[in-house]
Amino acid sequence: MTTLLQKPLDSDEPVVGLHPILYMEDVTVSFDGFRALNNLNLYIDEGELRCIIGPNGAGKTTLMDVITGKTRPDRGTVFFGQTTDLLSLDEPAIAHAGICRKFQKPSVFEQLSVFENLELAMHTDKRVWPTLFARLKGTERAAIDAVAETIGLQNCRTLRAGTLSHGQKQWLEIGMLLMQKPRVLLVDEPVAGMTHQETERTAELLQSLAGQHSVIVVEHDMAFVRSIARKVTVLHEGSVLMEGTMDDVQNDPRVIQVYLGA
C-alpha cells in the first residue's frame, strides 16, 4: 500500500483508484432558506491531497463544518470509511475517529505553552478521570518533540503559544492535528496572512503529510494551490462545479467565469 501512496509529488496525475475514505452524497445545508451547500457530492481517497477552491461564500467552511459535526445537514449522507456514519456522531467522537480540523482563524491555546498545546491534542484517552490522572510517558514526550520538530517549533516548546507569530500559530495548529493521529486532515485557509517563505514551508509541510493521511486543503491563494495540488475541486454556490487537475480547472470556461476570470 505504501508504494502506491507514495507517488512522486511532481506528478500531475491525481492519485486515483485507492479506497475512498470520505463520502459525501447529496448534502444540503440551508441557513434560513439560503443553501450554503446544495446537493453536494464529494469523494476523498485514502492518502489523497485535495484542494478545494471557490469564491467567498461558496460553502467551503460549511463543508468542513458538516464533516466535523459542527453543522448538521438538512439532507444527505456523510460516511467515513465504509461503515462510520458521521452524521450520527458529535464533534469529539468524530475527532476521536480520526478526522481533525484546522480552523480558518488560527485557534491555539494562547495561555498554554507550545508543548502543552501539543500535549492536549495528543491521541489518548480523553475522558475526564483518565485526563485528571494522566502523566506523560517517555514515548509520549518523544512523540510531542517529534511533532514540534516537524512543524519547526522545536526551539519554542516552552514559549506561550500567544507569543508566537501568526505563521507559527498556524503551524502549531497543524502540529496539534498531527498529534491526534488523524486519518483525515481538514485544513481551512492555512496560508492566509503568511509571508512568502512561510507559505513555501507550509506547502512542503502539507505535501509531506499526504500519503500517510488524507489532506483536504481549502485555500484562496492560487499560486499555493498550484504548488501543492494534484486534484482540485471547485465549489460554487454550494455544489461542486468541477474536479480535475489545476490545469483542467484553470482552462475550464465555467470556472473562469465564476471565479478565476472575475
Binding site: 495561555q111 492536549l120 490522572f133
Partner: peptide, 22 residues
Amino acid sequence: SKLGRVVLAVRDAESRVRFLGY
C-alpha cells in the same frame, strides 16, 4: 493536572477543545 490544562483551554477556546476530541 492535565485536566487543569484542558479546563484552561476550554476557557480560552472552547470549540477548539471539542474538535480535539474532549
